[in-house]
Nucleic acid binder design. Structure first.
Lengths: 213, 213
DNA sequence: CCCTCGCTAGTCAAAGTTGACTACCTGCCC
DNA sequence: GGGCAGGTAGTCAACTTTGACTAGCGAGGG
């Protein structure tokens, strides 16, 4: 799955109606340019592609109210909502070692209700367990460990990541079970998008060391 | 950086001279289809592209010795070797949260000598530290933590990954310092590629649960 | 002796990603 | 009131990735 589609659908859905630049700003607000490949080109491409596929409805262009060229506004369709929820559930459930997918799921999980989010994360724990069992079984040479030489470090690294990822997920489940955050149907939702004209407090200033991609 | 180029250069280099299908088999032997996007299309594309750029030298096609269409054989050029070492050093040094890049680096690190591998991994530890400091400073709201709501979980997840990744790296450094594995210039190298006709003990059998991509 | 199965070796179109580029407008300084 | 810095909104060509497809050959069964 491409994480871009999930992020873009989530942003459009929370706005009700949004143009590309707004989506782009939301993703920056979420920090997505730091932990995923959310770049202008990818975002506009995803919007057009999903409009073509019926996941979004593209309204005719409207003249800009704040300078710049006119803009196309998008609304999510029913089919798009289904796809959004499918992607979101998958992001929270599956263990695929791509941290950007989980990050996107975390940012959007409050679109589900608390019970479902918990159930998905529990399922995630089971997925990690299954993955770990299958991999350790499959890649253990008959002649005992160590036969793989330094190649074995790769598997050790995966397994370590899986274990610490499971530990972190367990902590998250506890926090949610303990009442943290506001989920769907629990009153005032957390405002996850920027209103038109609102300033982004996390806008990119100068780059900092360690930044990548 | 694309992990495919690093893997393909590494495979061709260890063979001396290899055709696409051989590279494809090596990557499967390394398990790369599990933890990276190493697929036939990507591999053949990388070979052609790097040949065009002078990193590989493409020999004229030779008829297959084992059925199937004729095949093109590749050899790494001097320029390709330079690029290979550059990519490998980068993979071991930089902290970019893409586990596939580090995995590739681990599989190929023995092409460097022990002292350099250790120095690069030490540098990696420092990179993680810098990244962590910058990120926690940058994304801490003035009004205290918790202002971010559930969005803060994303950053918590990154930071947790960085910390456990650093811990694992430290362990690896200890193992290498303690004499594990055979690095460049230390006698009989570990055989990391399959000879022509040799069977891959880790060839894909049935898929196992938890597999993704 | 023929036919199918599976392995060998690779191609291709469609989709996604990247980074640089453009055009427009506003506010502000001189 | 001219011009230019900076924000707004988006396009585009080049490149990479994906997944499905093809064609040739040998082994083995009937």
């Amino acid at each position: 799955m491409s994480v871009i589609r999930l992020l873009v659908l989530g942003a459009v859905r929370q706005h009700g109606r949004a143009h590309g630049y707004q989506v782009r700003n939301d993703l920056e607000y979420w920090g997505a340019h730091e932990w995923s490949n959310a770049k202008p080109g990818s975002i506009y491409h995803a919007l057009k592609q999903m409009a073509k596929q019926g996941l979004l409805h593209a309204h005719e262009v409207a003249p800009s109210t704040a300078g710049g060229p006119p803009r196309t506004e998008y609304e999510i369709t029913e089919q798009g909502t289904e796809e959004y929820l499918r992607l979101l559930r998958e992001a929270l459930t599956s263990y695929d070692q791509k941290p950007d997918v989980l990050s996107a799921g975390l940012g959007l999980m409050v679109d589900l209700d608390r019970a479902e989010a918990l159930a998905l994360l529990e399922q995630r724990m089971r997925s990690i367990g299954e993955w770990r069992r299958a991999v350790t079984e499959y890649y253990t040479p008959e002649d005992g460990p160590g036969q793989l030489g330094h190649i074995g470090e790769i598997m050790d690294f995966w397994v370590h990541s899986a274990d610490t990822g499971a530990e972190w997920t367990r902590g998250l489940i506890e926090r949610i079970r303990g009442g943290a955050y506001t989920f769907a149907g629990e009153g005032e939702p957390f405002v996850g998008v920027l209103a038109d004209g609102e300033e982004n407090p996390y806008a990119t200033r100068e780059r900092h060391p360690g930044d990548v991609r």
